[in-house]
């Protein structure tokens, strides 16, 4: 059942339809760039930028696009904003751009973005699409931050680059490497399923 009110449009992205924890969309950036919180934050914000602007454009021209070519048009629109984000980071935040590497251009294939255009923006008003995009982006950003917080604290002993665990702590290097991403995400997904199960049985 589609959400009705604006607040439902917004909050469903946070938990009920959270792209990472409930829909398992956008796994590539989720696993690849969450080795440090600053990277998770940058990726979350870049995705927010692309998703919000793409939703804005798609929902405003949805009536002009024949359904046969809608996917092609969406991809061109998304790719445009992705390129803008990529150039912007390279010009003004070169270290972050270097850290994220190919994963900024790869936002274009992040399923969350195309899925929201197809499932929501192409059928709803501009304002509702914007609210939906913001909610989904925020859900994605929160998921990335949670995952990168776990990985950075265990893997480097730091939080946003600040030392939080004392010198006694020997970093678990595995957590900043790819296996750490899979392990941490797997445990988080297990917890998310458990919470969902509990709340369902209570309902």
């Amino acid at each position: 059942m589609p959400a009705r009110t604006a607040s439902e449009d917004f909050t469903k992205g946070l938990w009920k339809e959270n792209p990472v924890f409930r829909h398992l969309l956008g796994m590539c950036p989720t696993l690849a760039v969450t080795n440090a919180m600053i990277n998770g934050l940058a990726m979350g914000l870049a995705t927010t930028f692309v998703l919000v602007l793409s939703s804005l454009v798609v929902s405003s021209i949805k009536k002009l696009i024949p359904s046969q070519v809608r996917i092609a048009s969406y991809i061109v629109i998304i790719a445009t904003f992705v390129t803008v984000a990529d150039r912007f980071l390279a010009a003004f935040f070169p270290p972050i751009s270097k850290n994220l590497g190919p994963y900024v251009p790869l936002i274009v294939v992040n399923c969350i973005i195309l899925e929201r255009q197809e499932a929501f923006s192409s059928k709803n008003t501009i304002s509702r699409s914007l609210i939906d995009a913001l909610g989904m982006s925020l859900g994605f950003l929160i998921a990335l931050l949670v995952l990168s917080a776990i990985r950075e604290i265990l893997g480097s002993g730091t939080f946003f680059g600040q030392q939080v665990l004392g010198t006694w702590f020997e970093p678990w290097i595995i957590m900043v490497l790819p296996p750490g991403a899979f392990i941490a995400l797997g445990i988080l997904l297990g917890l998310a399923n458990k919470i969902e199960e509990k709340s369902k049985s209570r309902r």
Partner: peptide
């Protein structure tokens, strides 16, 4: 394998 990757030096 976890230890090998987590604490390669030790």
């Amino acid at each position: 394998a976890f230890l090998q990757t987590a604490f390669p030096v030790a």
